[in-house]
Design a protein around this nucleic acid. Sequence first.
DNA 1: AGTCAAACCTGGGCGC
DNA 2: TGCGCCCAGGTTTGAC
Length: 278
Amino acid sequence: MPELPEVETVKRSLIPFLQGVRIEKAEILFAKIIKYPEPNQFRAKIKGKKIVDLKRRGKYLLFFLEEDLTLVIHLRMTGQLTLCKQDVPVSKHTHLIFSLSSEEELRFTDVRKFGLIYLVPTGEWEGIKGLWSLGHEPLADDFTFEVFRELLADKKGKLKPFLLDQRKIAGIGNIYADEILFAAGLHPLREIQTLKPAELKKLYRAIRSILEESIKNRGTSIQDYVDGRGEKGSFQERLKVYGRKGEACLNCGTQLQRIIVTGRGTVICPLCQGEKYA
DNA sequence: AGTCAAACCTGGGCGC
DNA sequence: TGCGCCCAGGTTTGAC
């Protein structure tokens, strides 16, 4: 579920309620979501620690705790991280509950149990491969057009798989890959090396503008996604291709098509994005 | 280096 | 209602 804009929204919604708050207790209801360390150690180490700060990197959430510990959480497809009162009934799919000094609870809920949770010494991400190997933050100031052009310079392969590769650019998932490609007017199967300078520029601008616009709309809620306060986002109302197979293109009226690109469902406008590459 | 399928899980929607 | 099938926003792994 959550891609960069959703994870960013969760982070922003939690920060004011978590900074300076202490984790009194961790209650583990489904042990397998804790990847490191062992559940008993996890419980013992996190007990009593104050949350100093909260950051996002790609689709990862990083909770910086006292004593140089970092709680790392990836929500994967259906994970939710929500703050609520202690008397709210616990969902069937809640796997981890943190009791906080603020009298609230922070709960991790995940229908598909794909989520990942680690507690590691700050900066020691070597054991968390996905975090360790993340590429550029697409909204960072230093992710300039020059950097982007260099990143694609001698790359082979197709556009959509590249956008989804977290080792190149961090945080883009299936929804935003489709929206970005439509905004740039580029076909997902287009070979990277055939891009003209003007198309590169359009792609770069689309990456930044789509992600920024989604954050402004507090993310995309299709099935499960909610922010840290349980609120849905509204970017799903602004999606132009994702989930609109068979509907009319908002630019030209052509019927949107669904194709498969490296196993991922992909919606395109065959006219605006160049049918010849399909 | 790239490409692809499979695996981890559960639930929703569809056709019959 | 029930069954079987396909689909789902992510990432890793291992084979080619």
